[in-house]
């Protein structure tokens, strides 16, 4: 308990400073910066939401793109460019809830699957929804894609920031609660957890639902940035793989691991794409392979190791002097 209190205080000040810098960004930042940070925040939200469930339980979910896409489509239906039906924050909330409900439903049916089977099923979910929507648009509505109301960049940015803050608070409270402890025990040994009185199915389903809420909300707000969406854009499988890679790249041991991982990853992607349009995928791939081979605990693990070495080196020097 003392340790958590200590770490929370240690992160409170840097956290608040970062938040202030971000909250005032549209006042001094260029339009490009605001849009870039919005994209980075979106990836952070996807990665951290993924870690909420898959981190402690060890269930590898590839359904992120499905929940993200459902959020995108919800926004497209509720805010077509022909006329907005509901205010933006309400739409974002509804999108989150629909994604969350979908996750609860899917989770209740499939969370008995373990390992690779769960991963394959969740990935299949993305394809199923995409194909159903394609069929629907082709056969029933006879349209292709949808246009979404254009929202100004600052509003998109602030709503994304709001989702990010809500997400980080949720993660923080889950980690500190007895619910979080139960979640972790499921990853350690699910059978023992069940025989210790933990309703493992319920804990897993609820957590899966919570993680999907944030993915759906992020999808809804991104839809207004993209303005045109179709099933291929909304249910792009990259949004299932990216969060996993970002979380592994950043390191999942700490709360801020996936945040840092996603931020660096998203920034790298953006800059490489603009500076080396032809070689960007190649460079990106090499960076990824090197990270997975040599950074088993991610960027955060590397930093912790360096700090430890530096401290040890420091004290050795002191000993030598005395």
């Amino acid at each position: 308990m003392d340790i958590t209190a200590l770490t929370s205080r240690r992160f409170l000040v840097p956290g608040l400073i970062t938040l202030t810098v971000l909250a005032t960004l549209p006042l001094y930042g260029s339009l490009y910066t605001v849009i870039l940070i919005t994209t980075i925040l979106m990836y952070i939200i996807l990665a951290v939401s993924w870690v909420i469930f898959s981190g402690p339980t060890g269930y590898m979910s590839l359904a992120s793109a499905a929940f993200f896409g459902v959020g995108i489509y919800t926004a497209a239906v509720l805010m077509p460019n022909t006329g907005q039906l509901l205010p933006l924050p309400v739409v974002v909330a509804i999108a989150g809830l629909i994604s969350g409900l979908l996750a609860v439903l899917v989770g209740a049916l499939t969370l008995r699957l373990r390992g690779i089977y769960f991963a394959i099923f969740t990935f299949g979910l993305v394809e199923i929804i995409k194909q159903v929507l394609l069929y629907w648009e082709f056969e029933v509505t006879h349209t292709r894609g949808r246009f979404v109301v254009l929202v100004d960049n600052d509003t998109v940015f602030y709503i994304m920031l709001g989702i990010f803050v809500a997400l980080m608070l949720t993660v923080y409270f889950i980690r500190r609660s007895k619910f979080g402890l139960a979640l972790q025990s499921i990853g350690e040994n699910e059978e023992a957890a069940a025989h210790t009185g933990i309703n493992v199915t319920m804990v897993k389903v609820i957590t899966f639902g919570i993680s999907a809420i944030f993915m759906g909300a992020a999808g809804a707000i991104m839809a207004t940035r993209w303005t045109y969406i179709d099933p291929y854009i909304a249910f792009n499988p990259l949004f299932s793989f990216m969060p996993v890679l970002m979380a592994i790249f950043g390191g999942m041991g700490q709360l801020y691991g996936p945040v840092i991982g996603a931020a660096i990853f998203a920034y790298l992607q953006e800059t490489l794409q603009t500076t080396f349009p032809y070689y960007y995928m190649l460079i990106f791939g090499i960076v990824l392979v090197v990270a997975i081979l040599y950074l088993p605990n991610g960027i955060v693990g590397l930093i912790q190791k360096l700090i430890q070495r530096w401290r040890k080196g420091g004290s050795a020097e002191q000993n030598a002097n005395t």
Partner: peptide, 26 residues
């Protein structure tokens, strides 16, 4: 309540947390 033939503990948690889970949820 039961124990297992091959121990099934929560390996990466502390000894206290292992037992605490029983008190909290059992």
């Amino acid at each position: 309540a039961r124990t297992f033939q091959e121990v099934k503990i929560f390996s990466n948690m502390t000894v206290l947390e292992n037992v605490l889970l029983g008190s909290l949820f059992g």
